[in-house]
Amino acid sequence: MSVYVTVGSTGFDALVQAVCAPEFMRALGGRGFWRLVVQCGASLARFEPPPAVREEFGVTATALAYVDRPQWHIEQADLVICHAGAGSILDALRAGKPTIAVPNRALADDHQRELARELARGGYLAVAEPEDLAQAVSAGAYAGLQPYPRADPRPIGDILDEETAL
């Protein structure tokens, strides 16, 4: 079982640090995850997993700065942990993956939190802070989530057709 962590197109030091912490590795091992892939963006330098992570926790940890095909990595994962950007959240929900969203407090007006909270209210994903991420994983907060309703962008086509018909 594998976990894909993504910070999106900027960086997110607190999230990268949180997924390198020994208690997070212990939570992964305890839940049967043995593979951790972290897309770090500008926070690549923060990727410092414990030295004997494989021997001690049974987890192989890999870091990438950016990926060409984020969807491919999400498809490979059994759990997605992402910053609460709309793009990453949509990619994860549309792939039908259990998702934990971590709002990036450092961003302007903190509007990531609203989106994550609203989707969590619907039961579509779990929300965690960097500080309680390990706890969320070990408690299985990502289990039993609702599938997100299918996307239907056709109303936009209808609206354009109506407007150009005037």
Binding site: S9, A86, L90, R154, I156, L160, D161
Partner: peptide, 20 residues
């Protein structure tokens, strides 16, 4: 940039390009 293009790509799946 900043997610707008990715979201627009999703929206455009609903637009009939035979018409537009």
């Amino acid at each position: 940039s900043g997610g707008h293009t990715a979201e627009m790509a999703r929206l455009l799946r609903g637009v009939d390009f035979e018409r537009h």
